[in-house]
Nucleic acid binder design. Structure first.
Lengths: 181, 181
DNA sequence: CTGGTTGCAAACAATTTGCAACCCA
DNA sequence: TGGGTTGCAAATTGTTTGCAACCAG
């Protein structure tokens, strides 16, 4: 996921990711403890710079590390601290990705509606719109959520999935990957 | 959504909406019945050209018309027929809006993170990206979901909601409106 | 010792499904 | 009359909460 054509807006993250040590350090700040489960969860997120569901994180964890509930709580904490970003691909399941340090890690994804593969799109194509929308609407602190959906090269043989815009319900149909819209 | 103040992308829907009669006609097509509950639901969606949750639709219905489950089923049917479009604002609840007839009714929204007010944004700002993303990634049938979030004029006094990017969890906090991120 | 953490069970909310009763074409 | 519809209850799934046991500083 880093061997993409240069100047190609579609590719996987290549930016350096925060060190586990740095993260744990930030954790120690507000009298929060750096416990085994938390370190393990951060480690998983660190190893998979892709949106993961809490369940996926849980299952990627060495068995017995902690309870699924703890993953939910830890991920919440990490989100609140800004170390993790939440994404929603419209299938009713929240996904989380480690936040890249330094540069604003705002970016989007391209999700295969058939196999759930996710491609990171590093360029944010819509930042300049936030200001325009704010100006024209009177809203302030405008942000946006943008995700792309389509069929990845490997899945282009199958029958055309009648609908690429559904939100829920697809959570039931999991073709081959774990994700999906 | 094309009779806008020239060059103003932010505004409310004003375009003509499909007549109930046309809709019921389309329904009659595939031996689906145009029942009381369905007509009533269409009517509600027709009157509120805004994303509504199934529960909101249900509550807007004259009491006793039908069960909430029926709303779920009817809305599903309408979606499958392309008469209704599903939107997801990241709070874990699906919302539906009547699909405008004729022109491609692809558009986006600007949602107030404080009061849930929704402003329709008629211009689709990202259509041309679908092709670009497709070309660069090898994906086909690429579409996207884009929604904006911010604080509407009326809500700009309150304390800054620490986070405008959360997905779930906000479903719990409903400031004043019914929606929300 | 003391407050932050965790496990486990239970609570919740949105959505779906089973099934028998119903009812229109 | 038969198949599409509906209501009601129950099951599912993702996520949150209550609470007592626990553990690190």
């Amino acid at each position: 996921m880093k061997d993409l054509a240069p100047s190609d807006p579609v590719h996987h993250h290549t930016a350096k990711r925060p060190r586990l040590s740095e993260l744990t350090e930030r954790l120690r700040g507000k009298d929060r403890r750096v416990t085994g489960p938390r370190a393990a969860i951060l480690s998983i997120l660190h190893e998979h710079p892709h949106p993961l569901t809490n369940r996926e994180i849980f299952e990627a964890l060495p068995p017995g590390v902690c309870d699924l509930v703890t993953v939910y709580r830890a991920v919440h904490l990490l989100e609140d601290m800004g170390l993790v970003t939440r994404y929603d691909f419209g299938d009713g399941v929240a996904r989380h990705e480690i936040a890249l340090e330094g540069h604003d890690n705002h970016h989007h994804h391209l999700v295969c509606t058939a196999c759930s593969r996710i491609v990171e799109i590093d360029q944010c194509l819509a930042t300049e719109w936030d200001a325009m929308i704010a100006r024209e609407s009177g809203f302030e602190r405008v942000t946006h959520k943008l995700e792309f959906f389509g069929r990845c090269p490997r899945c282009q043989e199958g029958p055309p999935s009648h609908d690429t815009t559904k939100t829920k319900g697809a959570a039931t149909a999991k073709p081959c990957g774990p994700i999906l819209e």
